[in-house]
Amino acid sequence: MNLISESQYFPPVIFFKSSYKISNIIIEQCESYQKLSFRNRCQIAGAEGVIDLSIPLVNGRDQKALIRDVRIADSLPWQANHWKTIVSCYNRSPWFSYYRDGLEELYRRPFGYLLDWNRECLDWVLRVLGMPRTVSGTTEYKTDYRPDEGVDQRGKWLPKNRESWGNEAPRYHQVFEERTGFLPGLSILDLVFCEGKNAIRYIQS
């Protein structure tokens, strides 16, 4: 079975829950870039609530280029800033030290294209979760897919609707939960740092 999805920056937990029984993930790489999505943004938990980590893009977020041609604005130190924020938010989480070195190495590597960065993020998470999947990209844009072609989940989860679909994802103990309450629908990073090797059990549930 195939799952067709847009490219995402450390996707929300629900992405992995919905793809748990899927053997092949197909990333849409022939669409026009769309803003206000998880294509260049992921959301993590901070002491004051949800924090957006946004990747700056060449020509900004209003561009109409194909997603495979969207370049990261590497003149800005976004990787260093994102990593600093991740450390600040999760340094006290139970499993952060276990995954820290591998993830820090990823944040030190230069990337020119958003699609390449997101693919590396996805591959990292699949390895950590122990979810071997075949990951490929589309070769043409299709408005719709037949049921026998796969499950089309493009555009299903958007940051602005997080609180409505976030409750479909599992609930677990978060670092700042006593202060902020449980924040649903966050990036898979939140679950991994909080539950570690048990994260896959929450995805299965």
Results as ranks from 00 to 15, higher is better:
N2A: 10
I4M: 01
I14T: 06
F16C: 04
F16L: 07
K17H: 12
S18V: 09
S19V: 01
S19T: 11
Y20G: 04
I26V: 15
C30E: 13
E31A: 13
E31M: 05
S32M: 08
S32C: 12
L36W: 12
S37A: 12
S37Q: 03
R39T: 00
N40M: 03
A45N: 10
G46E: 01
G46R: 01
G49K: 06
G49L: 03
I51C: 07
D52P: 02
L53P: 02
L53Y: 02
I55K: 01
P56R: 03
P56E: 01
P56K: 05
P56G: 00
V58I: 14
N59R: 14
G60N: 04
D62Q: 14
A65Y: 09
R68P: 02
V70M: 05
A73F: 11
D74G: 08
D74S: 15
D74L: 10
W78Y: 15
N81H: 14
N81D: 13
H82M: 07
W83M: 11
T85F: 10
V87A: 03
Y90N: 05
N91F: 11
P94T: 11
W95I: 02
Y98Q: 09
Y99P: 01
G102Q: 09
E104C: 12
E104S: 10
E105Q: 14
P110W: 02
L114A: 05
L114M: 13
L115G: 00
V125Y: 01
R127D: 14
V128L: 07
V128W: 02
L129C: 04
L129E: 07
M131W: 08
P132H: 04
T134H: 14
V135F: 08
V135M: 06
G137R: 12
G137P: 00
G137Q: 13
T138H: 06
K142R: 15
K142E: 14
Y145G: 02
P147V: 10
V151M: 13
R154I: 06
W157E: 09
W157N: 09
P159V: 06
K160D: 12
N161F: 11
E163A: 12
G166L: 09
A169P: 09
P170F: 07
Y172H: 09
Y172E: 06
Y172K: 08
E177R: 10
G181V: 10
F182C: 07
F182E: 06
F182A: 11
G185P: 07
G185I: 04
S187A: 08
I188Q: 00
D190N: 10
F193M: 03
F193Q: 03
C194W: 01
I200Q: 00
Y202L: 08
